[in-house]
């Protein structure tokens, strides 16, 4: 696995404000990495550093084999795609004209323009002016723009804002196809349940610092969050809390015929065995901690001013 992005102790300061604090990060080819964090956590700063729009105050960055803010930028920029968070394209132009403009700037074959418009589902609206586009259509146009020239690295800042569920699914299908071709994808998102199935690893940032980095399994192991087990059936009368000798297992009856158990990972099987042996239990549901739980867990240690909209 070749490293596409390498951060070594990267710090970025704007005056007295530390935007990013000694970040170490390696992203390999064909990986999908999610950047998660509150507003002002350093997500956009990280992207701008990768794009070479900002230079690090300390430390070094290498993207596709060179520093993105130096002479390497010219070659680098032809091989990466970027979708900024808030972008409104030239409204008097049509969707196709906008894309043709960007294709020419990137020196990409213009036949790709129509293909990409089809691919993001704007084929029918290609001749309409961007002014008449909905938020979702603009977002898809932005995505088409980022995909120009078959980039090796894709940076997507909040790519699914404004997309309906079907379009979101289409979007992640596109991401998966790109990844199969060996494209590396970095995406930041607030919509945590949406990204979970599609990412390889997540980087959780808070107050400019790296709070956690790893695959969902790694993060789960690191956080050691309890799994929730829900049991349903004829459960009246049983004192669930007293059934477990361990205090680590928390039982919470939801109603007369349902109970939620909070169970540490290593006790999971023991509890399951116990439940299956119980005559009243009809159904058991296993709910491992989601990305959202992990995110809450890892950002819990932050001071309030770091967690809020500190800009």
């Amino acid at each position: 696995m070749t490293a596409v992005i390498e951060f070594h102790g990267v710090t970025r300061r704007d005056g007295d404000v530390v935007r990013l604090d000694a970040l170490d990060l390696t992203v390999c080819e064909g990986e999908v990495l999610a950047l998660l964090g509150h507003n002002g956590a350093g997500k956009t700063t990280t992207m701008k550093l990768i794009l070479g729009l900002l230079s690090p105050s300390e430390g070094s960055i290498s993207v596709l084999g060179g520093a993105p803010d130096g002479a390497h930028a010219e070659t680098l920029r032809r091989r990466l795609g970027y979708l900024p968070e808030n972008v409104s394209f030239y409204e008097p132009l049509s969707g196709r004209e906008v894309l043709e403009f960007f294709a020419r700037l990137k020196r990409v074959d213009r036949r790709q323009v129509d293909e990409l418009l089809e691919q993001v589902g704007l084929g029918a609206a290609a001749k309409r002016r961007v002014k008449t586009y909905s938020k979702g259509m603009r977002q898809r146009l932005g995505l088409a723009q980022a995909l120009l020239g078959e980039p090796r690295l894709l940076l997507l800042d909040e790519p699914t804002t404004g997309l309906d569920p079907a379009a979101t699914r289409d979007f992640y299908d596109t991401v998966r196809r790109l990844r199969e071709r060996g494209c590396t994808v970095l995406l930041s998102s607030h919509v945590l349940p949406g990204v979970e199935p599609y990412i390889d690893r997540a980087l959780i940032l808070g107050g400019g610092r790296r709070l956690a980095l790893g695959s969902l399994e790694t993060l789960r192991a690191e956080a050691a969050l309890p799994t929730t087990i829900r049991a349903r059936g004829r459960l009246e009368g049983a004192d669930w809390q007293r059934l477990w000798s361990e205090s680590r297992i928390q039982a919470r009856p939801l109603n007369g015929h349902e109970v939620a158990l909070s169970v540490p990972a290593d006790a999971k099987l023991a509890v399951l065995r116990h439940l299956t042996a119980h005559p009243g239990v009809e159904d058991v549901e296993l709910l491992p901690p989601t990305l959202e739980h992990l995110y809450t867990h890892f950002s819990a240690g932050l001071a309030p001013h770091e967690r809020g909209d500190a800009q």
Partner: peptide
């Protein structure tokens, strides 16, 4: 203000 400047600056221009 419309965000396109940021985008243009990431192009090979």
């Amino acid at each position: 203000e419309s965000g396109t400047l940021l985008l243009l600056l990431t192009y090979p221009v």
